[in-house]
Computed example of a mutant assay.
Amino acid sequence: MPWWATAPRWPAPGGCTTPPTGSTRPGRSRALRRAEGLAARARQELSSAGLRPLPLRYPQTDTLTAQERKAAEMTARGQAAAVVAKALHLTEQGVRQLLSSVYRKVGTDAAGLAEALETFPRPRR
């Protein structure tokens, strides 16, 4: 039987509106704790099935390198990959790989890159 079939349901059948209790961490909403628990259980199930779950990424700790930020800013301004490659002394394929890393870290694609860069933390010096 899959793990989600045995997971407790809330609200419980019969109309109980009191959420289940559990350990509480200060400053964490109950929904976030439940989501984190569900994610941990899903990762455990993936591991037990022989799959490697992707590492979790957080914008607070996963900042862009200086070269990634420069490439992202140039791309967000509309410059072509060839121009970015020449400015950064890379090949066009290298720029595409760099931007792929940027999109993954920032959590967007080329269309939302400019807006996402405004809120993404700058690298520490």
Results as ranks from 00 to 15, higher is better:
residue 6 T to C: 04
residue 10 W to G: 00
residue 11 P to Y: 00
residue 13 P to E: 02
residue 14 G to Y: 07
residue 17 T to W: 06
residue 19 P to D: 03
residue 19 P to R: 02
residue 19 P to E: 03
residue 21 T to E: 15
residue 22 G to T: 10
residue 24 T to W: 09
residue 27 G to M: 05
residue 27 G to W: 05
residue 29 S to C: 09
residue 31 A to P: 09
residue 31 A to Q: 14
residue 32 L to A: 14
residue 33 R to F: 04
residue 34 R to D: 14
residue 36 E to L: 15
residue 38 L to S: 13
residue 39 A to G: 09
residue 42 A to G: 08
residue 45 E to T: 11
residue 47 S to K: 12
residue 47 S to W: 10
residue 49 A to Q: 15
residue 50 G to W: 09
residue 50 G to V: 11
residue 53 P to F: 04
residue 53 P to L: 03
residue 54 L to D: 13
residue 55 P to L: 12
residue 56 L to N: 10
residue 56 L to H: 12
residue 58 Y to G: 11
residue 64 L to I: 08
residue 64 L to D: 07
residue 64 L to R: 04
residue 68 E to V: 02
residue 68 E to W: 01
residue 70 K to W: 07
residue 74 M to D: 08
residue 74 M to I: 06
residue 77 R to N: 13
residue 78 G to T: 07
residue 81 A to V: 14
residue 86 K to P: 06
residue 87 A to W: 02
residue 91 T to A: 03
residue 92 E to H: 00
residue 99 L to T: 00
residue 100 S to N: 12
residue 106 V to Y: 03
residue 107 G to W: 02
residue 108 T to Q: 00
residue 108 T to E: 00
residue 109 D to S: 08
residue 110 A to L: 01
residue 113 L to A: 00
residue 116 A to Q: 07
residue 116 A to L: 02
residue 118 E to P: 01
residue 121 P to M: 03
residue 122 R to F: 12
residue 123 P to F: 02
